[in-house]
Design a protein around this nucleic acid. Structure first.
Ligand SMILES: [Mn+2]
Ligand SMILES: [Mn+2]
Ligand SMILES: [Zn+2]
Ligand SMILES: [Zn+2]
Lengths: 127, 127
DNA sequence: ACTCTATTGATAACGAATCTCATTACCGCT
DNA sequence: AGCGGTAATGAGATTCGTTATCAATAGAGT
């Protein structure tokens, strides 16, 4: 059975308080700086769990995985500032349909898709 | 100035002969198996060059970069078999427009996007 | 041919992520 | 509340993709 630990709660809380996508290592450093004694491996495990249950979304950038607390049970995509990490959740039913159709047209089954939009947020654009 | 070497040509040719996306290490192994004495670092450098000039597209899967020879000067996306790597190039003007608009609506500038569709190709679906 | 220097490649170094395993502590049970 | 089984933890070792080093090589203009 799955047990509840303060470590998992700490990771969940730290994720929620982050503005945008963060790496496991950044989250671990933030927790340690805040006085926590949590281990790095535990942060990785907690993030993997959260991503597995749908409570966190992840994406890969520059060869490392980034995570973000997300609205559960709601498939969506992200608009991400590549400078400061600020993230906006986006619903895109048209793209969902397109992805499903394009896979079917070529005889591909069990389709899934990766759709992310990067840019500079208003604050980072004006500097 | 940029010099022409048989190593760069070998990487370009090997990429072109590959069916789908391949990793730098897989390409290096294939070249060595074919009798080439090319070094691993050179394969990495050649692939980075090709990606930089737009002659190759790249994506990240399971923490490693995969590359593929692509039609130059033609922005497109990919439908990829996650079992055998077989890839189909896809034009999707509607998605291009959507990405541009969604960025503009939120005040994000200099937008770009990552759009990939994964699935099982017809051959891999029937097993 | 000569010279300059971009390129190469064996190897070391780096870094994100995972594994090991002895220790800890959550939780169902009495 | 006290036990006991065992899931979870964490410091350190390990794996593995990628990049940095740097002496040797070779492309290309003269
Ligand atoms: Mn989607
Ligand atoms: Mn596009
Ligand atoms: Zn920003
Ligand atoms: Zn396939």
């Amino acid at each position: 059975m799955k047990r509840n630990t303060w470590q998992r709660e700490a990771v969940r809380d730290a994720l929620t308080e982050s503005e945008g996508f963060v790496s496991a290592q950044a989250l671990h450093t933030a927790l340690r700086d805040a006085g926590s004694a949590i281990g790095l491996a535990t942060v990785y495990r907690a993030l993997a769990d959260l991503a597995g249950t749908g409570d966190a979304d992840s994406l890969q950038q520059d060869g490392e995985s980034l995570f973000r607390a997300c609205t559960p049970d709601s498939h969506h995509h992200h608009l991400i500032c590549r400078n400061c990490g600020t993230t906006v959740e986006i619903k895109a039913d048209a793209v969902e349909e397109w992805a499903k159709n394009v896979a079917a047209e070529h005889g591909f089954t069990e389709p899934h898709h990766i759709v992310d939009v990067f840019g500079l947020c208003p604050a980072c654009s004006s500097t």
